[in-house]
């Protein structure tokens, strides 16, 4: 039995210290998922905290044969999807939110080419903003696939979808992102094309 399973078992028996170890281990992936889903660090922090609280309250329902990581990311994804759906119906439009592309990734000034690094950062921020235009479930699938290397089967389990639905959602999202990228950045790609290979 590894440490994680032991912590889960102890936490299920009521040990808050063991659950704290799980929070320590999974805070980064959970926060990152929430950040990619919600787009703002403050909302991501709140959602990540709420995810862990929900996990704590529902720990007795956790099936020990599954990966704890998949389970907690599934809680986070569903929470963020719900929150985005509520937000969509609330008075505050998503367009009124911070459009500055708030990000916690700061380009390293000591990197060999700060200009290129800064351009990359700009592209990442733009991509981060484009993610906001995807459907909530599609966004969760994209984040799980590309940030966590989840297989389509794992995404399907986490989001309660079929594998073919996940595949089709991923393809649809990638196409949508590419189309938005073209609109957002029509002049940038010839420059980049001359510098580097885009294929794989």
């Amino acid at each position: 039995m590894n440490d994680e399973n032991a912590w889960v078992l102890q936490a299920q028996r009521g040990s808050d210290e063991a659950f704290t170890q799980l929070v320590e281990t999974y805070q980064k992936p959970v926060f990152n998922l929430c950040y990619r889903m919600l787009g703002e660090p403050e909302a991501a922090e709140d959602a990540a905290q709420e995810t862990f609280l929900r996990a704590y309250q529902n720990l007795h329902r956790y099936d020990n044969s599954r990966s704890f990581g998949t389970w907690i990311l599934s809680i986070a994804a569903h929470y963020c999807i719900d929150r985005l759906r509520k937000r969509r119906f609330s008075v505050l439009s998503i367009d009124e939110e911070d459009e500055d592309g708030l990000t916690l990734e700061i380009p390293d000034p000591a990197s060999p080419d700060p200009e290129a690094e800064s351009a990359k950062q700009e592209d990442r921020d733009r991509l981060h903003l484009l993610l906001k235009d995807l459907d909530e479930t599609d966004r969760a699938a994209v984040v799980m696939r590309y940030w966590y290397d989840y297989s389509e089967v794992e995404i399907a389990q986490s989001l309660h979808l079929t594998v073919s639905a996940v595949k089709s959602r991923l393809h649809r999202s990638r196409r949508a992102l590419a189309e938005m990228w073209q609109v957002e950045k029509p002049r940038a790609y010839p420059e980049r094309r001359s510098r580097e290979s885009l294929a794989f």
Binding site: V23, Q27, F31, N32, R36, A44, E45, L130, W147
Partner: peptide, 26 residues
């Protein structure tokens, strides 16, 4: 080209970390 570029970006974008003290706040 946009499809390739966004795919590459998705694969290389870093994981964002929460502000320090997350566990204490939890």
């Amino acid at each position: 080209s946009a499809l390739a570029e966004t795919g590459k970006m998705l694969k290389t974008t870093k994981i964002v970390n929460p502000a320090s003290g997350f566990t204490a706040r939890f």
